[in-house]
Deep mutational scan, measured.
Amino acid sequence: MTLTLTVPPGAKVRVRITNENGETTEIEVEPGETVTITLPAGSTVRVEVEVVDPDGRKRTETFTLKP
């Protein structure tokens, strides 16, 4: 399973991925970048995406991906 994120110009994104064992991976994606994350097959993962807009506003979306 893959997750692809494209960050709009001016925004910053931090992604936290937590697996079933509670292990967390965190990455930051710079403005204008596209990143593809390969998620472990057969695992349920929690993905938290934090977006910081150019004006400093933050918003966070959290979702769970199941196999």
Rank of each mutant, 00 (worst) to 15 (best):
D55P: 00
T2A: 07
L39I: 05
V29I: 05
E61H: 15
T36C: 14
P54S: 07
T2R: 08
S43A: 13
L65S: 00
V35A: 05
K58L: 04
K66M: 14
T2F: 13
T44R: 03
E48L: 03
V52E: 13
V51H: 04
N19G: 10
T4S: 06
T6V: 06
T36N: 08
T38V: 08
L39P: 08
E30R: 11
R59Y: 14
N19D: 06
I37R: 14
L3E: 01
R46D: 03
A41R: 12
L65Y: 14
E20H: 07
T24K: 08
T64L: 12
R46V: 13
T18D: 08
T6K: 08
R59P: 00
T2G: 06
T62S: 08
V35N: 06
V35K: 06
T60S: 02
T25H: 04
P40L: 14
L3F: 06
E23H: 07
R46Q: 06
L3G: 02
E50L: 01
V45H: 06
V13Q: 01
I37H: 12
A11W: 08
E33S: 14
T34L: 14
P9K: 09
P8Y: 14
L65T: 00
V15M: 12
V45M: 04
G22Y: 09
K66R: 03
K58Q: 02
E33V: 11
P9A: 09
L5T: 05
M1C: 14
P67Y: 15
R16K: 04
V29Y: 09
N21C: 13
T18Y: 12
T44I: 10
K12F: 10
E61S: 06
K66Y: 15
G10Y: 03
T44D: 04
K58D: 00
A41D: 07
L39F: 13
G42P: 09
P40Y: 14
P8K: 11
G42H: 11
P8L: 12
F63R: 12
L65M: 14
R59D: 00
R14I: 04
T6L: 14
N21A: 08
T36P: 07
E23F: 09
V29L: 08
R57N: 08
T38K: 05
T36W: 13
D55H: 02
T34G: 10
G22V: 09
L39M: 10
D55W: 10
T64N: 03
T62Q: 03
F63P: 15
G42N: 08
M1I: 09
E33L: 10
R16A: 05
T6F: 13
V29Q: 13
R59N: 01
T2M: 10
R46P: 01
K66C: 15
K66D: 14
N19E: 09
V45E: 02
V47M: 02
R16L: 04
E20A: 05
T25C: 13
V15E: 00
T38G: 09
G10L: 11
E30L: 05
P8S: 11
I17V: 09
R57K: 09
T18L: 09
P31T: 09
V49Y: 01
I17W: 14
E61I: 15
I27Y: 12
E48W: 04
T2S: 06
L3A: 04
R59C: 14
T62A: 03
K66E: 15
G42F: 12
E20I: 05
V35Q: 03
R14V: 08
R14N: 06
I27F: 11
T2E: 02
P9S: 07
L65R: 00
N21S: 07
N19V: 14
T60I: 13
T4R: 10
E20Y: 10
L5W: 12
E23Y: 10
V51K: 01
T44G: 03
G42E: 10
G10C: 10
V7D: 02
T36E: 14
V52Q: 05
E23R: 07
N19L: 07
S43K: 14
I37S: 12
K66T: 15
V52H: 02
E48F: 03
I17R: 10
V52T: 14
K58N: 01
M1F: 14
V29A: 04
P9H: 08
R59T: 05
E23D: 08
P54F: 09
P8M: 13
E50S: 05
S43G: 13
V49T: 01
T24G: 11
A41G: 11
V29S: 10
G32E: 11
E33C: 12
G22Q: 09
P54K: 10
V35S: 08
V7M: 08
V51G: 01
P40G: 09
K12Y: 09
T44H: 05
T34D: 08
E26R: 08
V35E: 03
T62P: 00
L3R: 02
P67K: 01
R59G: 00
V47D: 00
E48P: 00
V51C: 04
R16S: 04
L39V: 04
